[in-house]
Design a protein around this nucleic acid. Structure first.
Lengths: 104, 104
DNA sequence: CAGTATCCGAAATGATACTG
DNA sequence: CAGTATCATTTCGGATACTG
């Protein structure tokens, strides 16, 4: 790694899905299927992989309830919550960008 | 596209390099070789491709001086400058993250 | 429900050589 | 200096089937 802070951030939220997943979790804890339905383009495999990586990087917490049928909840960790300002600025810019490109 | 604002932002700054390139340009106009040296891991091909896409999305401006040897300068467009807050929040979070992971 | 496992094609990225 | 062109390789992502 090169010490560039922007690269450091990308190393954690890089890829097509992680920022989107985190953004869903800003609004609160979500179950696996909730995430899957809410991010309609993602496959189960991708979702699983990205969640595992986010967990490994300590941004999210995975909570397994020992029930049948299984119940697994994902939420932002304290560290993950420090990422919210980044997500918010991305969302805000995205809103304007959506307007700007509307109809193209 | 799904209308998710975070996805909209990723569609423009996604990939491994675009945010890093933009971050370099926040500090001012840069020549091709300056960018190449400043982002040590990037290949010439990647840099060219990413710059072309950023130009297509109107985030940067490419200025060619008709000289020999050639001189090409890249800078943020007005629209690209609206992206600076996103880059800044990414950089700020990245700084903390670099500290946190220092020594691992 | 919340995953894993396997396979495979497509896309992203890299190495290297060449050019106006 | 600022690129292209070409080819090799690596990674990503989708389809499908199976499981505790």
């Amino acid at each position: 790694m090169s010490g560039c802070p922007v690269e450091a951030t990308l190393s954690v939220m890089g890829g097509k899905w992680k920022a989107v997943i985190l953004w869903r979790l800003v609004k609160g804890t979500k179950r696996f299927n909730e995430l899957e339905r809410s991010i309609s383009q993602i496959t189960r495999k991708m979702l699983t992989e990205q969640l595992r990586e986010l967990e490994r990087d300590n941004l999210i917490i995975r909570n397994v309830y020992p029930e049948v049928p299984p119940k697994v909840e994902y939420s932002l960790s304290d560290y993950g919550r420090t990422f919210i300002p980044v997500l918010q600025s991305m969302a805000q810019w995205g809103l304007v960008h959506l307007e700007r490109t509307a109809g193209r």
